[in-house]
Design a protein around this nucleic acid. Structure first.
Lengths: 219, 219
DNA sequence: CAAATAATTTAGTCTTATCTAAAATTTATT
DNA sequence: AATAAATTTTAGATAAGACTAAATTATTTG
């Protein structure tokens, strides 16, 4: 199927924002992620739904179909392989390559990407440490990381916990931390390993011990 | 200036079709080259004229401005450098790379293209033998070739002659050969070096001696 | 659980790039 | 040079992707 750049970008956005437990993405979160209006997103979701690239119900959000997931994953593969090329072959730095890879990922040619993969030596991770899906779309999920592995400035979604005893969970809910919440890392304290972050525009601090048990997905 | 893909493709088409003596390109020839309608071309020429990328007068055709020429040449540079990469680094064959380079040439990053140039070892010619403009847009004009150097199937425009004595020119006009005419090569005769080609859907044959003195530009 | 708030969709516009059909202009021909 | 033919432009539509403002549906809160 021939997709436009816009359609491809929406699929990628939905994949990025997809998190457990329901794997459903809201209109507003897509709009915020892409920097466009909610109305534009609705229009596109209708179109992607008709093409059966996503499952979409009015007012209920969207999730990727099998086809949509395959296409979005292949875009991630292309994006990350190109990033490796830009750093490894052309000597660019990891912070210079994102925007260029954002354009390169849309080049349509399976042969090209398979040859690029071979040329680069079948790398498993991109320069940011994110895993590169193989030609079949399989990859080791490393996009799920511990909160302690985050870097200041990053935005992420809370997707789970590594411990589930009641006192821990109660502590989290008191702080306003819940699965599905979007967070933004402010910084790591060098002395006590605590992490400052914002949730719902509220600033708060979590101890290193707590942060270690919170799983997030970068967005 | 931020140009759309369509605008860039029009500039490239105009550069390709530009030939002596007047360096002016007609609406219809652009339409034929791009496979679009004359009306669409007129619309775009108006827009490019307003942006001062071309000089355009209604009913009189278009020619590239200095800026337009610079941009179009830089697109040719990108296209040919990417073709070298695809063949030299990825091992593709010269006939597989054109369409992919057609997409890659639009990636916007000066840093990228300069690094790619260095990575490839500052090649002077692409896999088809066409010269690659340097970062300043300079290149050895080899797109002008003798008719004897053509290959069956190629289409070209007659852009000049290497000899200009009267009997030669009279011979040409009798055959229907004139500057600005579009020709298509049918084949080279192995015994007498004569060349068969079509002009205005008329099939004709030119002797090797004559062909040697006709300069063409591939399209 | 009803009212208030938030999220989402619909309706109506705009821009870019395309098209066809009709009108205008230029070029060729008799 | 007048008319015919070819070329080019204008006029009016369409589709994709975006927007704002208004309407609708869902969620939260008192």
């Amino acid at each position: 199927m021939e997709l436009t750049y816009a359609e491809e970008n929406y699929l990628k956005a939905i994949l990025r924002l997809t998190v457990p437990p329901d794997y459903t993405v809201s209109t507003n979160s897509i709009a915020a992620h892409l920097g466009s209006s909610a109305a534009s997103v609705t229009d596109m979701l209708k179109k992607l739904g008709e093409k059966e690239l996503i499952l979409y119900q009015r007012y209920k959000g969207a999730s990727l179909s099998e086809t949509g997931n395959r296409i979005a994953t292949s875009l991630v593969r292309k994006h990350r392989l190109w990033e490796v090329f830009l750093v490894q072959s052309l000597g660019m730095t990891w912070d210079e390559v994102h925007d260029i890879a954002e354009e390169l990922e849309h080049i349509k040619s399976d042969q090209l990407i398979e040859r690029l993969d071979a040329f680069l030596g079948y790398p498993k991770y991109d320069p940011h440490g994110d895993p590169i899906p193989n030609a079949k779309g399989k990859y080791t999920l490393r996009s799920q990381i511990q909160l302690t592995e985050s870097v200041p400035g990053q935005e992420a979604i809370v997707i789970g916990v590594r411990e589930s005893d009641n006192s821990f969970l109660r502590h989290l809910s008191e702080k306003g931390v819940a699965i599905g919440k979007t967070i933004k890392i402010i910084g790591h304290d060098l002395y006590d390993q605590s992490i400052r972050l914002t949730i719902d525009n509220q600033e708060l601090s979590l101890s290193g011990k707590v942060a270690q048990n919170i799983l997030i997905k970068l967005i």
